[in-house]
Each structure stands twice: as C-alpha cells, then as structure tokens.
C-alpha cells in the first residue's frame, strides 16, 4: 500500500525568485490489489506525481509511506528494490545497450534469451526481431514505448506505475495492451497498479479513478462513480476558451 500525505512540489520559476507549485497538497492512498487510473488535463501534474512516487523528484513538503515505511527520503534505487516499478511517459534512449540487456537488468537475474523474449511477446513485439536491437533512436516511438512497458513487466514490481502507456501505440496493438493490463489485474494478488491515462478503455478497467487538475486532487472514487462524470463533461479545461490561440501563446 502506498500513501501520499499532503504532498506538495514546487520548482523555481523562470525568473528565479518566484516558486511555482506543480503539485499541491495531494493526499492519496493506492490500496493493495487495486488498479488505479489517474487522469486529468495536460499539464495537470500527473507525471510529476508519478516521478515523486518513484523518487525521481523529492516533494517540497509531505510524506510518502510504502507498506507503512516512510520512503520520502529514499533514493530511486531503494524504492525500486522495495518493489516500485515505473514506465516512463517518454522512454529513455541509450547507445549500445540492447533490449535484452535492459530486460535482463530489470529481472535482476541471469536471464536466458528465451525467457526475455516472453516479455516482448507480451507487449506484441516479435521477440526475435527486437531482442538484440539497441534501445536507441533507431527504434520507433511506439516500439520504444512497448519495450519500456516490457521492462516493467519483467521487473514484476509490487507497485507498477505506468505513465501514459498507450501513447504512441497503434490502434491494433492498443487492444493487446488492454489485454496486458487485464492480465495484470487478474493476477494482482499481493501487488497494485497505477496507470496514468487519457483513454476511456483504460479508465474502464480501473477499480478507482483519480482526477488531477492544476496540481490538485480534483476527484477520487470508484470507477462506477467517477467515469460517468468524466464522460459527461464537454471540456477538461472549462475555464479556458478552447479553439483559439491568443497572440503570444503557442498551442501544444
């Protein structure tokens, strides 16, 4: 079980003196044996929250408890060794490190090529074609994304965090990805899953849904309760005029 207690995270503003609060006083519990999906508008602070959970960023204030232990000050490595896994929204590229190396490091064992291949097959990649490829810019965005997910599957974390796993994955494979998560959900005993997503299909396999907006926890409850309210709203950012780009601003 992961507990976030009054987590806030600030960064220095561009001018240097002012501080911007990206995550504001978020308290949230990820219970055991549940699949939680976090959603919300772009720039709302979802990835930042995931990075705080993994320890890539440290909160400005607040506390993180994992299975009752205060892990707020623990490093990424220590959290990984306690069972937290994280699939990046934007997978990292390497020079020279091969897909097999990454999967082997994820399992922390002397893995055979055959066993490594099963994780690639699980994310819909023809293992034979990819196992010895470099995890570099020569892979397509979608390929990198699937390999990223495969490394987390291989790690078999007790708490698996996926940041927009569907991004860049084609429609045909999306079904396959849903099956991966359904499979994980079916075998969730002793673990929990946190997925950041904008996809209705992924929201619909959640036990609980969390909405993060403007760095704050806007909604949290069982899927049955939250999902209908999300599908009902016309716009995720109601106080902003949609469809116009004012001079001096750029669209994302």
């Amino acid at each position: 079980m992961l507990e976030l207690k009054n987590i806030s995270f600030q960064v220095a503003g561009e001018k240097g003196d002012d501080r911007i609060e990206i995550v504001r006083n978020v308290s949230l519990t990820i219970p055991d044996e549940k699949l939680i999906v976090i959603t919300g508008p772009n720039g709302g602070g979802k990835s930042t929250l995931a990075r705080l959970i993994m320890g890539i960023e440290k909160p400005t204030s607040g506390q993180i408890l994992y299975n009752g232990e205060d892990i707020t000050e623990l490093s990424v490595t220590e959290r990984a060794r306690r069972g937290i896994g994280f699939a990046f929204q934007q997978p990292v590229r390497f020079k020279g490190i091969e897909v097999f190396d990454l999967i082997r490091l994820a399992t922390g064992t002397k893995l055979s090529v055959k066993d490594a291949c099963q994780y690639l097959s699980a994310v819909g990649l023809c293992a034979r074609d990819y196992i010895n490829r470099e995890v570099s810019g020569s892979l397509s965005g979608g390929e990198l994304k699937r390999i990223e997910i495969a490394t987390v599957l291989a790690k078999k974390p007790q708490l698996a965090v996926f940041d927009e796993p569907e991004a860049g994955i084609d429609l045909w494979s999306f079904q396959n990805l849903i099956e991966v998560f359904e499979g994980m959900r079916a075998n969730i005993q002793g673990s929990s899953i946190l997925i950041i997503s904008h996809q209705e299909r992924i929201l619909s396999i959640a036990d609980e849904i969390v909405v993060i907006r403007d760095g704050q926890l806007a909604l949290h409850g069982p899927k049955e309760e939250i999902l209908p309210t999300l599908l009902g709203t016309d716009s995720a950012v109601p106080d902003c005029k949609m469809g116009t780009v004012t001079k001096g601003e750029t669209a994302e």
Partner: peptide, 13 residues
Amino acid sequence: DQIIKLMTLGLTE
C-alpha cells in the same frame, strides 16, 4: 535520465 531509468530497475547509480 539514462541513469535514472536503470535506477528504477534497481541498480545503484
């Protein structure tokens, strides 16, 4: 970010 990715897999820096 390369170091961090490997640390999320349980390696030390």
